[in-house]
Computed example of a mutant assay.
Amino acid sequence: MLSPIPRLVAAVVITGGSLVAAPSVAAAATDVTPPSVPQNLHVSGEDRGQAIISWDPSTDDSGTVRHYWVLVDGQQRARPTATTYDIETLVLLCRITSGPHDITVEAVDPSLNRSAQSAPLGITVR
């Protein structure tokens, strides 16, 4: 008669009908520190017919920023990984209407901690 082969199911090993708890795994330290607030929001490229929002990169204690949120009038509209975003994309894909709007940016780290919002950048969509 063959003896049963142990197999791992979740965190429990089943051997011959007996349940044996697997060794515990130490939980990784939880990161609760948000990234720095994005700074220096500005628009560039208007003279070339392509308005781009840019900002200085945020920093995080993990060493990396996962992505940014671009908010228009307080609503999340885009999630770039770079420190730029095309305003035309906000207008066309995110359906930003004509008129004045405030744009802010938040940084997000690998643990999904979010920074505070940047200072607002006022734009007018025509």
Rank of each mutant, 00 (worst) to 15 (best):
R126Q: 11
D31C: 13
D60E: 13
V105P: 04
H101L: 10
T97P: 04
P57V: 09
V13H: 02
V25N: 01
G17C: 11
V72I: 14
D61T: 15
T84E: 10
N40Q: 03
G45T: 11
P35N: 03
V43F: 05
P120E: 08
D102K: 02
I123K: 00
R126M: 03
A28R: 08
P80F: 12
A26C: 05
V32H: 02
L41A: 00
G63L: 12
G63F: 11
V72E: 06
V125W: 07
L90C: 07
S115Y: 07
R7D: 14
S98M: 11
Y68L: 09
D47S: 11
D73V: 14
V70T: 01
Q39C: 01
A26D: 12
I14D: 11
S18I: 15
D61R: 13
A116D: 14
T64L: 09
V12G: 00
S3V: 15
V9C: 01
D47P: 00
T64I: 11
V108H: 02
A116V: 09
R7T: 15
M1C: 03
G74Y: 10
P110Y: 08
R7Q: 09
T83K: 01
V91C: 02
A119V: 08
P110Q: 08
L71C: 06
G63A: 05
A82P: 02
V25R: 00
I53F: 05
A78V: 14
N113D: 09
R48P: 00
G16P: 13
A107K: 02
L121G: 01
S115M: 13
I123A: 00
T104C: 06
D31S: 04
D102A: 06
I14A: 01
E106K: 12
V13T: 06
I87K: 00
R77K: 10
L92C: 00
G49M: 14
V70F: 06
A51E: 06
H42S: 12
A119K: 03
A29C: 03
A119G: 02
L2Q: 07
P34N: 02
T33I: 15
D60V: 14
A119I: 03
D102Q: 11
P38T: 07
T104P: 13
N113A: 04
D56L: 11
I52D: 04
D56N: 08
A29P: 03
N40R: 01
T81H: 03
V37P: 05
G99D: 13
A28G: 07
